[in-house]
Write a protein that binds this DNA or RNA. Structure first.
Lengths: 152, 152
DNA sequence: TATTGTTATACTCTATAACTATA
DNA sequence: TATAGTTATAGAGTATAACAATA
């Protein structure tokens, strides 16, 4: 009997393999996973405050400080003053950072195509819908953990 | 247009969310991902030398020393002398360690059921087949071992 | 008073290299 | 000489707490 346990097993295996693959390709560019994740987020959101990045990456603001420090030292990103709020900074990509993200996006497109090679369009759509559902359920669980106690 | 890029996006999102969920549930037991991974490995292999565990987890022997120290301090595992080789130790689970692994397996079953709730059996089978294909392609691209419950 | 980012401190995971006790 | 595990050291990622500047 092949039930839901099989789906979770596969998803966990795929998560591990994807992580492995991503880390390998990062090593070639000299970036760590956490720093690349931040870079990727800025690449997609545009210049962002560190608070926004902390929320997006689900880590503490203090953590963002260290990652941005390292990315700035490596020439991938820089801090710019926020136009309206002098407390905040806008993390932006440098030319090197933007180039690096473009290369990564291209590599990711190749990977995406390779992973679903052989599926026709309707299968692709259905698979996408199922993954949407799973992602939504997971996101819901994390937002509101079960058994959530009296929060003191 | 929803193409293969969407599938990879979702898989990456799910990988991130699963990791978060697993780490959260571990926190309630007082275990970290790396320590749980080691515990899980011993649970499945039986008493093992630290060298064997280093190979299984693909980390350095020095790393295993620290993880076993922490697990022993927490009462989850203990070191026993190797019967034939006085240089080596056998890492074994305590009662608490074994109980904890059983509880995690149960929690994982609940999660699996919740994630695919609402899918009928044929959808489940098809989703499983598609994920099989993706996992196989990924594994082919990389050289990688079996899965683990802690995603690390 | 609340928010943004930082300094200070600490823990976990990981690695390399040198050392010890055995084999 | 080779192997099993540990001590020593280091860097990355993460967290909490206290603080400064600004809103």
């Amino acid at each position: 009997m092949r039930s839901d346990g099989h789906v979770l097993d596969r998803l966990l295996q795929i998560a591990l393999l994807l992580q492995h693959d991503m880390v390998e390709s990062l090593g070639r560019v000299g970036l760590t996973p956490a720093r690349t994740h931040l870079l990727w987020e800025v690449h997609h959101r545009g210049p962002s405050t560190q608070q926004a990045l902390a929320a997006a990456l689900r880590v503490t603001p203090r953590n963002i400080t260290g990652l941005v420090d390292a990315l700035a030292a490596g020439g991938y990103a820089e801090r710019r003053p926020h136009p309206n709020d002098r407390r905040a900074t806008l993390v932006t990509l440098t030319g090197l950072g933007a180039e690096t993200m473009k290369g990564m996006a291209a590599e990711r497109e190749r990977l995406a195509a390779e992973l679903t090679d052989g599926l026709d369009e309707s299968e692709l759509v259905q698979l996408g819908r199922h993954l949407d559902g799973i992602a939504n359920r997971l996101a819901g669980m994390i937002e509101s953990p079960h058994g959530d106690p009296a929060l003191q």
